[in-house]
């Protein structure tokens, strides 16, 4: 069984909007950096919006390969414009002010290198943005990022953002959750074991596939050297390999038959059900009853009486 978390981080399970919900007890920033590292191998440019930390502090420890692809947007040093009258040291990051009307898309557009078509966006974190700009505005900006017009010269392939879930109320978190294709709740695992032996935290993943299928999973994870992700399946502990329990078979010694053989199954499939169009084709008369399953009906061939409340 492959790890869903690993698939999402490496991009084989695509999710265009990933939000990592963390709490004071366990920071989601380690996982965010794993995403940063993995995405650098897939896209032309990564636009990093830093609202919680200086971009330099955030990029500390990442490898130069990743750094070359990162375009920093500094929303930490001067988000309110208080330092404008001071002579600021020029930085190679684009300054983002929370009070300005400029949207995230415009910031990306301004800093984008020519010829970069595939762009990923990393936001650390959404919390100050939501607190200053309101939740609906944040949702709108996120949506605008992932739904650029077809004619645009670049496309945002993935947006990964961090959000401190204990700061916001439920309605805000749910709004952001609806917008994202993947929601990862991280929580701490209290243990003293080395990081590669036992997970440093758990991820509760809710992943919506493009087909509409929703996957829910809980996996353990650790972050190794160079922000390599290590996943742990089978919780709570991976070390104890449990024997598959022998399930007693209740249908084994019965005086009657509960299961069908192949030929019996075939015979059942050939039976024409009463009141369906096929069975009533030949009969004529008035006041006939037809049963025609419409699309909303969940018609199950295996069990046609499923809807009866017996």
């Amino acid at each position: 069984m492959a790890s869903l978390l690993k698939q999402i981080v490496s991009g084989s399970e695509s999710g265009c909007t990933v939000t990592i919900h963390d709490t004071v007890d366990h920071s989601g920033r380690y996982l965010l950096k794993c995403f940063l590292k993995e995405m650098a191998q897939r896209v032309d440019e990564i636009h990093l919006f830093a609202f919680d930390q200086a971009p330099d502090a955030l990029l500390a420890g990442t490898d130069p390969e990743t750094r070359r692809k990162v375009k920093g947007h500094d929303g930490w040093t001067d988000p309110q414009g208080w330092n404008q009258d001071r002579n600021v040291i020029p930085s190679n990051y684009n300054a983002v002010q929370l009070s300005s009307e400029k949207s995230l898309v415009e910031h990306v557009k301004d800093r984008k290198g020519s010829g970069s078509g595939q762009i990923a966006v990393v936001i650390d974190s959404l919390t100050p943005y939501i607190l200053h700009r309101s939740a609906p505005f944040t949702c709108k900006s996120l949506h605008a990022l992932t739904h650029l017009p077809e004619t645009s010269e670049f496309q945002v392939t993935q947006v990964v953002s961090l959000i401190h879930s204990d700061v916001h109320d439920d309605s805000v978190l749910r709004a952001i959750g609806h917008l994202s294709s993947t929601v990862i709740h991280v929580s701490a695992n209290m243990s003293l074991a080395p990081l590669d032996r036992e997970p440093m935290g758990y991820c509760d993943i809710q992943h919506k596939r493009a087909s509409g299928k929703v996957l829910q999973k809980r996996e353990g994870y650790s972050v190794g050297e160079n922000y390599q992700i290590i996943t742990f399946l089978g919780l709570p502990s991976t070390n104890t390999t449990s024997e598959p329990e022998h399930q007693p078979d209740p249908t084994a010694n019965l005086t009657f038959n509960l299961t069908l053989s192949e030929s019996e199954k075939k015979a059942r499939e050939n039976v024409v059900l009463p009141f369906t169009k096929a069975s009533n084709n030949s009969t004529t008369g008035s006041g006939q009853i037809f049963y025609e399953p419409d699309q909303a009906d969940d018609y199950d061939d295996e069990d046609p009486d499923d809807d009866l409340d017996i």
Binding site: D25, H26, A57, L192, V223
Partner: peptide
């Protein structure tokens, strides 16, 4: 006392 570290090596809180 709750201390945080930006370093991965002692990422355990």
């Amino acid at each position: 006392i709750r201390q945080k570290s930006s370093n991965v090596d002692n990422a355990r809180p």
